[in-house]
């Protein structure tokens, strides 16, 4: 199965390729110290890189990536909004590409690199440029869609450093928000892109 962001409103066209591993963050360090994969009956060890750190989790065939992130790895920043790939709240990056973690089988994560919202910031917990832009532009209200929205925006900017409004809306169309009307979210993505260009590249 190809890891692909599935959702009725997914934008056409290829998604982002991996941008390389991020420095280990506090969250990743915690993740790596998680439940050992001593194989409980009916489980398979999944070895993958989560937020820059090696992780190993005993997963059942029915587990979704979302389950092992939120459960044994304790990465509750990834939200479950619908469980059906329709709202994008659980968006994470797998090898740099945005996927709905509620549709992605846990066993498929083996050998891959997963980035969750906890892995975006710097080592001391500082926010990434996209996260900061969301804060500063008022793009966050209840915040439930924000982690997924921020990861979708992060993936967009990795591919399109200078996205048009249309490209931003395409990239976010699989992420539902009930609070903001998307206006300040689009502004935040635009602001993050502009700042990145001024700063000459990376965050």
């Amino acid at each position: 199965m190809t890891p692909r962001k599935t959702g009725r409103r997914s934008a056409p066209g290829p998604r982002v390729s991996a941008r390389g591993r991020r420095p280990e963050s506090g969250a990743a360090a915690r993740a790596s110290g998680s439940r050992p994969a001593a194989s409980a009956p009916g489980t398979t060890p999944v070895r993958f890189v989560v937020n820059g750190a090696e992780a190993e989790v005993a997963a059942r065939p029915s587990d979704r990536l979302l389950d092992i992130l939120r459960g044994p790895l304790g990465l509750t920043g990834t939200k479950e909004g619908c469980g059906a790939g329709e709202c994008g709240a659980c968006t994470v990056l797998v090898d740099g590409r945005p996927v709905n973690a509620c549709l992605f089988p846990a066993l498929e994560a083996d050998g891959r690199a997963v980035t969750t919202i906890e892995g975006l910031g710097g080592p001391a917990g500082e926010l990434s440029d996209v996260q900061r832009a969301f804060v500063e532009c008022g793009a966050i209200q209840c915040g439930f869609c924000s982690p997924g929205m921020i990861l979708a925006a992060t993936a967009l900017l990795a591919e399109h450093p200078d996205p048009t409004d249309g490209q931003i809306r395409d990239a976010l169309v699989g992420n539902l928000c009930r609070c903001t009307g998307y206006v300040q979210i689009v502004e935040a993505v635009r602001a993050a892109a502009a700042r990145r260009r001024t700063a000459g590249g990376a965050r």
Partner: peptide, 22 residues
């Protein structure tokens, strides 16, 4: 004035705890 919200940084970082996370 236009001032960013105090709860936004934790929400942006995925650190806000909803009922689902408790």
């Amino acid at each position: 004035r236009a001032v960013p919200r105090p709860d936004a940084p934790d929400k942006a970082a995925g650190r806000a705890l909803y009922i689902h996370d408790l």
